[in-house]
Amino acid sequence: MNPLIINKEYTETIYLFNEAKADLHIVQQEASTLNLFVLHLTDLSCMQHIHIQQEGEHCRTNIYGLAVLKGKQEYLCDTLLEHQKENGTSTLIFKYLLFDEAKGEFVGRLKVQPNAQHTDASQTNRNIVLSDKAKMRTMPQLEIYADDVRCSHGATTGALDNEAIFYMQQRGLQKDLARQLLLQAFAEDIFEKMPIQQQEQARNLFTQRI
């Protein structure tokens, strides 16, 4: 598969809304920006590979993803972000919501090549598991070969906050509604990064899914 090239100083915004079949390979030239939004809100079980190379200096990469998995669904998202030249920045936030017996897996590979000094990269994977039988596996993998860089990563997997649910119930909200507000809040973090026009579509897909 030929990679998609983002030309020098261009900005490309890509939406993969329920299009997980499509693997993605993108090469960024100097001072280009990639905004990538991935939503996996269907019953489809699959593996998705996303490979981004910052081939030029001063590139910017933003990746935001959200998956809601149900039933016996399995979904693996494997990301590889390569910083190859100086002064690149990247932000990745990927979230999973797992119901029933769903299995989710997230691989966040971050590679900073020796030439990629002054890279500033952050990677976050947050997951909420809503049933005892659902499983989440998260694997951040950082390979850093340059010495003057800033890289951070964090991964958390937990249940819904019961104290927050009780707090809302104490104010008169039904338990189901409280749960729903928390789930929406969890997803909103991703939606609010999108341009206004896509936010509405994303919210609708999400509401139908949960």
Partner: peptide, 15 residues
């Protein structure tokens, strides 16, 4: 309790 992502206005209006 802190509830990130749920705005005070919406929360109170719902309540």
């Amino acid at each position: 309790v802190e509830i990130p992502g749920v705005s005070m206005v919406n929360f109170m209006r719902t309540a």
